[in-house]
Design a protein around this nucleic acid. Structure first.
Lengths: 160, 160
DNA sequence: ATCCGTGCAAAGGCTTTGCAACGTG
DNA sequence: CACGTTGCAAAGCCTTTGCACGGAT
C-alpha cells in the first residue's frame, strides 16, 4: 500500500508547471506527443481542485476558447491517469469524476446526498486497516478507495 | 453509522423464507404486489452469496425455467435494495453488482484484478474511523463503502 | 513517408422508460 | 373496474471506437 505522499500545499501555480513537465515526460517516454490539446486539457484539470466529470471539463475548455473534442478529452484524461497525475473516481453516480493529484496527499471522499458537495478526508489509520485485512487474506493490495455518503453540516441543519 | 448487524451464519434456507416474508411486507406496506416474478428474482438472489450482475441473475432465472424479462429484473432488484434486503455495489467495473444481505454482517470488498475474485472482509475499526472523520466535518454519514484492489494469494503467486 | 493525434459520428454496454396488454383485488 | 405489473423495444447516458484527415518527425 502506502505511497502516502508527503503533504504539500495544494496546487500552487508552480506545481502546475511541474505537473505539465511530468506529463510531457510521460508522453515522451511512451513515444507520444505533447500536443496543444493535451496541454489545454491537463491545465484545465490541474487548475481546479474540484472533481470534474469529462463533460464539465469539456465545457470549461470550450468556455476558455479551446476547441477540443469530447473524444480527445476522454483520451487525454486516460493518459493523465496513466501518468499518475490524475485519478478517476466514482462517487455514487453513474459516471466518472476526475481529480488531479498535484501534491495532494492520498485522500478519500465524503459525498453529501443533499447538495452533492464532496469533502476530502484522510486518516492515517486507513492504510493500517487495509494492510492488516489484506495480509490476513494473502491479498496484495495496490490501491483502495473509500466513499462515505450522508449529509453535510449545512444540509443536515436544513432538515428542519 | 453503525447498524453493524449481529453476526449470523450466512444464508441458511430458513433465513431465505424470512427474507421473502420481509420482502412481502415491504411490498404490502407500499401498496405493491408480491408477484411470482418478484418472488423468483428474490429467491435467485437470496440463494447465492455471490455478487451478481443483473444479466447473470437473468441467466440463472432463465436456466431454472423462469421467463422474467430483463426490465423486471432491474425493477425488482431496485425494490430489494429499497427493502434493505440487498445492496447494489460497484467494484471497479462499469456495471452494478447485487448482493443479498440475509444475516450477513456489514462488510467491504477486495477485488482481485487477476482473476476477478471478490473477497469480503470486515474490520470493526472502519466504523470508528468513518465516525471520527465525519464528525470532524459535521457530516452525518448514512453509509460508506470500501473497495480494495490488488491480487489474491493465488494470482500473486502465479506472478512467476 | 511514417506514425501519432484529432474530430466526428456511430457504435457499445448497461440501465431506464414508454406503452399496450394482462391480472388481481 | 381500477390499478399495479410485465415484456418488449426503444430510448438514454456515459464512454469508446472506426475512420479519414492533418500534422509532426
Amino acid at each position: 500500500m502506502g505511497k502516502s505522499a508527503v503533504a504539500k500545499p495544494t496546487n500552487g501555480s508552480n506545481s502546475v508547471a511541474g505537473a505539465l513537465r511530468n506529463f510531457g515526460e510521460h508522453l515522451a517516454d511512451n513515444g507520444l506527443r505533447f500536443t496543444s490539446e493535451r496541454r489545454a486539457i491537463a491545465v484545465a484539470l490541474f487548475e481546479t481542485d474540484a472533481h470534474l466529470e469529462a463533460e464539465e471539463l469539456l465545457l470549461r475548455l470550450r468556455r476558455s476558447g479551446s476547441r477540443v473534442s469530447r473524444a480527445t478529452v476522454y483520451r487525454t484524461l486516460d493518459l493523465l491517469v496513466a501518468a499518475r497525475l490524475a485519478r478517476k473516481v466514482r462517487l455514487g453516480t453513474d459516471h466518472n469524476l476526475f481529480e488531479h493529484i498535484l501534491g495532494r496527499r492520498q485522500h478519500e471522499h465524503m459525498v453529501c446526498i443533499g447538495c452533492g458537495q464532496v469533502i476530502e478526508w484522510f486518516d492515517p489509520q486507513m492504510d493500517r486497516i487495509v494492510e492488516r485485512n489484506t495480509k490476513e487474506q494473502g491479498f496484495t493490495a495496490t490501491r483502495y478507495t473509500v466513499q462515505v455518503f450522508g449529509r453535510c453540516a449545512n444540509c443536515a441543519e436544513s432538515d428542519s
